[in-house]
Simulated scan of single mutants.
Amino acid sequence: MVTDRTSEPGGAPSPLRQPVMTRSSLLAALGVVAAALVPLQAAHAQQSADEESAAPVIEQETPAEGPTSPEQTADSPYLSDWYHQNLTAIGSKNIRFGPQQVDDIYLEYEFFGRKGPLDLYGYIDFPKFFGVGNGADSGIFDNGSPVFMELEPKLSIDDMVGRDLSVGPVKEWFVAFDYIFDWGHNTENRQNTLYAGLGADFDTGSPLGLSLNLYKRRQWENYGAANEHSWDGYRAQLNYSYPLGSFDNGASLVYVGFTNHDFGSDLGDKDPSRTNESTVATNVLLYQFTHLRFMAVARYFHNGGQWNDGVTAPFPDTHGDSFELRSTGWGYYFGVGWQF
């Protein structure tokens, strides 16, 4: 998650807005996330029944070993047996995708699931939806971006060719995409980026879910940056999740994480305030019931948004003063949502 704003003073591009939970709500990032988010209380109930030798319990599917979301039974409490959704109010602090740190409170609609060869993840953000943010923040109601979205579909190569292509620890191969769109009010405040490549899910022999995607980047609009309308660089994306436990009150606790490393760009060669590489590592704790869920996120940025940490920005801040770019450090998110 990030925040779009109106044009920075001096005609500088708006900062990039990105998901918290990328693939999240840092769910992301990911089929891995999707599996981790499926409620675990059914398994807990079954275990209790076995221990007490009680009457048989109708079993529901629980997360399998893979990163994809299992289909629910006919008794599923959700609207779809494979397409899972949630709506979350998120507060963010010290987000470093742009030249200035952004604080924002916004609304996010998130969706994910697996059906046939399609493994889908995505979200739509409505920036500054509640009218709260710092001076660098703008959004849907104050001439900022009304919508920021990310769509991450993967197509199973194994399913499409009808063969098991697993080898070693790799249990499934994918054609993977990551499309990011920020609908700024003009081209200087808009992003339009496609990552395309290959993905793999791994068998870890444990409850740990693990996947890796390698992308090449096609950059169209990018807030007026010098790499617009070009093929510019690559991204390595590692996604991981681990169920931490379930509780007597029906809640479950899940850790979800993902790391994006962008490299091989030429942007830093064209602009000394930018870099050719950038890394963002996201760590999420999800405490959730069947519908209600709580999210806490710590995200580490290294040259977030490919801004060169420590150099003087080539444009003034919102007060007309010069400032130093602070694109390396921690940012935080907290959210309350409803799964349906």
Rank of each mutant, 00 (worst) to 15 (best):
T73Y: 06
T73F: 03
T73C: 04
S76E: 07
L79M: 04
W82A: 03
Y83P: 00
L87S: 07
L87H: 08
T88L: 11
T88K: 07
I90L: 07
I90C: 01
S92Q: 09
I95T: 15
G98S: 10
V102R: 14
D104C: 01
I105H: 04
E110L: 10
F111W: 13
F112Q: 05
F112I: 09
K115I: 15
P117M: 02
L118T: 11
L120N: 02
Y123H: 09
I124P: 00
I124R: 00
I124K: 00
I124C: 01
F126L: 07
F130H: 08
G131V: 06
N134W: 11
G135L: 04
A136Q: 12
A136V: 10
D137A: 15
S138H: 14
D142V: 08
D142R: 03
N143R: 11
N143H: 13
N143V: 02
P146T: 10
E150R: 05
L151A: 03
L151H: 00
P153R: 01
K154A: 13
S156G: 12
S156L: 03
I157N: 05
D158G: 05
G162A: 07
R163M: 10
R163I: 09
D164T: 08
V167H: 08
G168E: 04
K171F: 00
W173A: 04
W173H: 03
F174Q: 01
D178H: 01
D182C: 01
